[in-house]
Design a protein around this nucleic acid. Structure first.
Ligand SMILES: [Mn+2]
Ligand SMILES: [Mn+2]
Ligand SMILES: [Zn+2]
Ligand SMILES: [Zn+2]
Lengths: 148, 148
DNA sequence: GCATATATCGGAACAGTTCCTAATTAGTAA
DNA sequence: TTACTAATTAGGAACTGTTCCGATATATGC
């Protein structure tokens, strides 16, 4: 990422914070910068260790809180279903899933015009694909109809 | 699932076990049956509780061991990345991921002919889609070139 | 039935994440 | 600048899902 692109994103982050009445702490900015400029999808502990080099007293809790906050703000994303336990599927036929981000329910999705998906050619250079799955996330009917 | 379909799958399970020299224990069969006939993608604890109704002394460890064994055999699958911690992504632009099932590395995938994917119409009845992501799993270059 | 390699049980250990509380600090206004 | 206050943090305890471990039990082959 270019230096000015990072600056632009940091500025955007500050704006969002101001707009939402969130305090601009040193920790928050360092954590955001760390994830924003990283290319390798770090886990929380990796971020924690990196941040600690610049802010030696930072706590793991602060890292977690901030990461989820940034995620909620849409400034970063997560890979894989955030904070869920593993769920098993007795149906091994090719199909996809809709996961409700509120109640965690998992629905099968296998419409006729929506069969197994083909991996893109780009993949050849990355590795050997064993499974391709589509994960739709959102709010299920039941949850949508409930008062928050 | 039809009764005979379940029987067929159970028989297949027994065959695979025999072929691999794995013992056909009562626990294993009950656990497999439980997941095979379930429609709602249960987590390990849910399976544990169901199985306990039939085998009151079963241990949670046995349930976990058996579920992962069935998964390795390809007789059941998991929803979401199995046993991984959450990883964060500073890149919020629409793209997909290849996750190495051995080392856990995450690679970005965003070829030109492979943009954001559209959710199928079937989804309307299930819920409101917030994100659509493709997860490719397999073995990355580096891992593939290593002796197991 | 007997031998034995495998699998199970129960509980301790572990890892990742969240919670709790006292102390600190950013933002605001005098 | 200083004082005030609500938001935030650090540190450690607690929690949750999962795995490990050692003693016991059992499926399978002879
Ligand atoms: Mn399914
Ligand atoms: Mn990415
Ligand atoms: Zn829901
Ligand atoms: Zn790898």
């Amino acid at each position: 990422m270019h230096e000015d692109e990072l600056d632009r994103r940091l500025e955007h982050f500050k704006e969002v914070c101001r707009h939402e009445g969130l305090k601009l702490t040193h920790q928050r900015m360092v954590i955001f910068e760390e994830v924003a400029k990283s290319r390798d999808h770090p886990d929380a502990d990796t971020v924690f260790k990196s941040v600690r080099d610049k802010v030696p007293t930072v706590s793991l809790d602060t890292v977690y809180r901030t990461l989820w906050m940034l995620n909620a703000m849409g400034l970063i994303t997560t890979v894989g279903p955030p904070r869920e336990k593993v769920r098993f599927d007795g149906d091994v036929s090719p199909h996809h899933h809709f996961v409700c981000s509120r109640c965690g329910a998992v629905y099968d999705v296998h419409g006729p015009a929506f069969g197994p998906i083909q991996a893109p050619d780009e993949i050849e250079g990355i590795g050997q694909v064993e499974s391709v799955r589509l994960e739709l996330r959102g709010r299920c009917r039941r949850c949508a109809s409930q008062i928050e």
